[in-house]
Nucleic acid binder design. Structure first.
Length: 269
DNA sequence: AATACACACAACCGCCGGATC
DNA sequence: GGATCCGGCGGTTGTGTGTAT
């Protein structure tokens, strides 16, 4: 590879006389032999970036690795699965949802207790719809937020969904299965759900990724949000629409990678 | 010292999309 | 238009090493 550069991997395998397929050679090169690979443990900054990007992109390891020079998707994936995921699980299990923290509403405590929704930094963020009107970062995530304050977006993602996804650092991303996986409590109490599997048709059931990327919203008390939410919105109107985070402007999303936590959200709680 | 266990990491596997024939 | 090849990706497994018992 150093002599001839990247060409056809099957030729590489042939010419090297190895009992390996091209695919295997490619993987070995990318994940281990490449001279520009960074060795050693992940720095706290890298870890921060990984957590942040994963909250946005989910398990798109290659896209995450593109923002970490010298790190491979495989390396990041392993690091996530072996270290970060475990740490988050530990944090969420050790954090007491009943702690008398006045900054966390009773409702949010309930939700946290039920789902383990907890950031690895032990900052309990539950962005509200109001955040959307005041927070430039959220607005940047929601292109049509002024005309379209309700969740529906062309990309199939909504303000609160984006916020919930953004703050869902538990590793489950949007794959909440049948459970409530995030909540917003600004007096209007809304909950984001991943709908029960049974509610999907067979065609959708067949694609787990599709299900995991689809969420529905439930308005619990019929308080309209900007007059746009009503109970008719409840249910399946999101089913079948995929979240396409790949279309998001990562440069914008990355603006707030450091430092955690995000002060705008904290001040709104 | 031997064994069991946990962990990190490299490698494998299956699937997919694009290019080419 | 279909078949095949190739590269890329994400999920999973295998393996070596360190640690606890």
């Amino acid at each position: 590879m150093l002599t001839n550069g990247q060409g056809c991997w099957s030729d590489v395998a042939r010419n090297a006389g190895l009992q390996r397929c091209g695919k295997s050679c490619r993987l070995r090169w990318i994940n281990y032999l490449r001279p520009d690979l960074k060795r050693g443990a992940f720095s706290p900054q890298e870890e921060e970036i990984i957590v942040h990007l994963h909250s946005i992109l989910g398990n798109r390891w290659s896209q995450i690795s593109a923002h970490l020079p010298g790190r491979t998707d495989n390396e990041i994936k392993n690091f996530w699965n072996s270290t970060i995921k475990k740490r988050m699980k530990h944090l969420s299990s050790t954090a007491s949802p009943n702690a008398s923290d006045s900054s966390v509403s009773e409702h949010n405590k309930d939700v946290m207790a039920g789902t383990g929704f907890m950031s690895m930094f032990e900052q309990e963020y539950f962005p509200t719809y109001d955040d959307l009107s005041s927070n430039s970062f959220l607005q940047s995530m929601v292109p049509n937020h002024t005309e379209n304050p309700l969740p529906m977006l062309k990309h199939g993602r909504n303000a609160v969904g984006a916020a919930a996804g953004y703050f869902d650092l538990t590793g489950s991303g949007f794959s909440g299965d049948n459970e409530i996986f995030a909540s917003v409590d600004n007096g209007r109490k809304r909950e984001l759900h991943a709908p029960p599997l049974e509610s999907f048709g067979e065609d959708l059931k067949s694609t787990e990724n599709t299900i995991h990327r689809n969420i529905s919203i439930r308005n619990n008390n019929n308080n309209n949000m900007s007059g746009n939410i009503n109970s008719a919105d409840v249910g399946s109107f999101w089913i079948g629409e995929e979240l396409k985070v790949g279309e998001w402007d990562l440069e914008i999303l990355m603006k707030d990678v450091s430092p955690f936590p995000l002060p705008d959200f904290q001040s709104s709680i």
